[in-house]
Each structure stands twice: as C-alpha cells, then as structure tokens.
Nucleic acid binder design. Structure first.
Lengths: 182, 182
DNA sequence: GACCCCATGTAAGACGTTACATGATTGT
DNA sequence: ACAATCATGTAACGTCTTACATGGGGTC
C-alpha cells in the first residue's frame, strides 16, 4: 500500500501530527498523487508506529501527537523510492479518464469539454507560477524545498495538458471540415 | 463510480465483450486513466445492463456476450463528460507519488531516481510517437481515432515529465554545489 | 491429445469512504 | 458565550483485489 510511503515521505521532510498530514493531503499530495482522508491516515500512522517506522516524538494540546520517521522508516522510504517499479502501478484519475473518453462525444461537445480543460489548466498553472515565484532562490532540500520540485512537476503537467487541449480543439475543427460528410 | 463511465465510453466507440474490455484496460485506459480487472468489469457490465445503459447485442463462442451502449447510456456518458467536475476527484498514482516524495531523498539518490524517470519517459514517448505516425492523416472520430487524442495526450505528458526530470537533475546539481555547506 | 488463449464467474478478505461522534482550544 | 477550527476516533457499508474455479475453442 502506497499510503504508508506517502506518510513516510511527508514525515521524512518534517515531523507532523495526523491532522497536519491530513491537511497536506488535502492541499498538495492528494490533488496530484495520492488521495487519503483522516480516517485512513490515523490508523495507518498507528500501524507504521507498530512496525517501528515512525514514532511519536511529542504530544501537544488537544491530544495531538507529533510523529517523526525513525531511521528504519527512512530506510524503508529510500528503498521504495529507489527500487525501479517492476510494472506500472494501478492508476485512478477521473480527470484523465474524461480526456481519454472524449472521442466518444461528437466534436461540438468535445470542444466544449476541451474548452473547460484549457481554462482550468491555465488557471491552475498560473497559481503554481505564483507559488514558484515566492520560493525563488531557496534550496531544494528541507521543508521549504519540498514543494518546489513537486510544484514544478505540477506546473509542467498543467502546461502540457493545456497545450494538448488547445491542440485537440484545433484538430477537431480541422477534422470536422475535412473529414465529415457534407 | 467512474468504472461505469469508463465502460460506457469504451462501448460508445464500439461494442465489445467483457473480455475485450478487460484487454482495453490492460493495454491503454488502465495505464493512464483508470485501472480495473475483469472481476470488477463483469459485474459492472451486469449492473449497467440492469440500469438499461448497455445491452447484449450478440452472443458468440465460448459464452461471450457483446455489449453495446443504449441511447440512455450514451446520454448518461455525455452528461458525465460535459458536467464540469465540481471538485477535483480522488487521484491515485504511485509513479507521481514517487516524484512528489523525491525531496525526502538526498540529492545523489534523487538523481538516480530522476535518471530512471528520464529514461523510461523517453522510451514511452518514443513508443507513442510510433503509434501516432501509424495513424497519421486519419479522422479523429470512430474506433480508429479513439486512440489518437489519447495517444497525443499521453505523449505530451511523457514529454513534460521527461523534461521535468532533466530539469530537476540539473537543479539538484546546482543546488548541491551552491547551497550545501562546505 | 496437449496446450494455450478465450471468456466468464464466485467468494474471502483487505481496503477505503461515508457518516457519526467527541471534546479541546482559539478567536470574537 | 458562540462559532470555527483543531484533533482524533469508531462503525457500517461499499468497493477492489486476490485466489480459485470452470469450460469452450483453436492450433500443432
């Protein structure tokens, strides 16, 4: 299960509570890479603690527990990241699914959808460019840098999808006039 | 559940058996957009048939049943594709997760992983370029065209990730010499 | 006849989502 | 005081995965 590695990865950057991790999933990780809610995260933290991969380093107000990775956890994370994935994993992404099924629509409808995609990806890319500008010049390691490689990754994805959507609209335009009967 | 829409989408392009749909998932859809095995697909086809969104149009050898979308199914698919997603759905992608957690590694290890990524994305992109060349000039609708928008989508994604990986390696290089102590 | 692929199915268990629930602390 | 947010947890339900199971049809 990848949830465990997602948690190890976040905790490897800096210790956090289950609640804080839940927020991280909502704001960044969960949007692009791996979704999880607090009802999955809390029990998983417990299991990781049992396996000795994380530990509670402090307890704060309202019963909050701050977790940190142990050396064993860091090693587990490292080997998971370094091992080349044997075969492509199991992907689930509703947005991408929509894009794959576009050909099932007639061109007029497809262009409507592509227009929405072009808009939303442009907006998302603009947002990430602001984030990137805010972090300019800082190092790529540590909590600060954590988001940087990821943000650039997301930005380039959005740009690619945006350009694809624009391209696809143009193709459908041409296809409609060239290939459709009368 | 998006599996139902994935099936409607594939069947909207051309009728197929559960077995053939399973193959489609293995070869294309499942790699990028939505994973599912035959043990999910068969029961779901049954449920779609009960709801009148698909129907069995013929039965062939070895008990195979060919399904096709009904007009109601086509309408359901259309409205699902056209409705702008209210809020970003639940994404799961182990590859992307790895990329997001790279900052948890030290730069030397991160560069190894990025090297693998750069290689595999280059290979995948090359494969898709061949597919694209094979389909050049044909229409974007119908079974032939189905893969074209999708293939181009995949190609641009791979190219974007490849360029990101190359960029990230260069950044880590610079970061190591500029920002690390001593 | 042997083997491989086609084609579908069932069932146990793991996993995840949704809804419900509780209480502490902070801000106004 | 009140509301919002912090912080965690339980339980029921639904979905998915894994393993097992069966038999027809084509090919050598």
């Amino acid at each position: 299960m990848s949830l465990s590695h997602a948690l190890l990865g976040l905790l490897a950057v800096e210790p956090a509570s289950g609640y804080a991790l839940t927020k991280s999933f909502e704001l960044s990780l969960g949007r692009y890479a791996w979704h999880a809610g607090h009802t999955s995260i809390y029990p998983e933290l417990g299991r990781l603690a049992e396996r000795g991969l994380v530990e509670v380093t402090s307890e704060g107000a309202r019963g909050s527990r701050t977790y940190a990775v142990t050396p064993a956890g860091r090693e587990e994370l490292r080997s998971w990241l370094l091992q080349p994935p044997k075969q492509s994993g199991k992907v689930r992404n509703e947005e991408v699914l929509r894009m794959f099924l576009l050909s099932a629509l007639d061109p007029a409808d497809a262009k409507i959808v592509l227009g929405h995609v072009a808009e939303s990806t442009a907006a998302a890319a603009a947002g990430l460019r602001e984030i990137r500008a805010a972090h300019e010049g800082s190092s790529f390691r540590g909590p600060e840098g954590f988001g940087q490689l990821a943000a650039e990754f997301g930005l380039r994805q959005y740009e690619a999808v945006h350009e694809w959507a624009v391209w696809a609209m143009a193709q459908l335009e041409g296809d409609q006039t060239t290939n459709s009967p009368a």
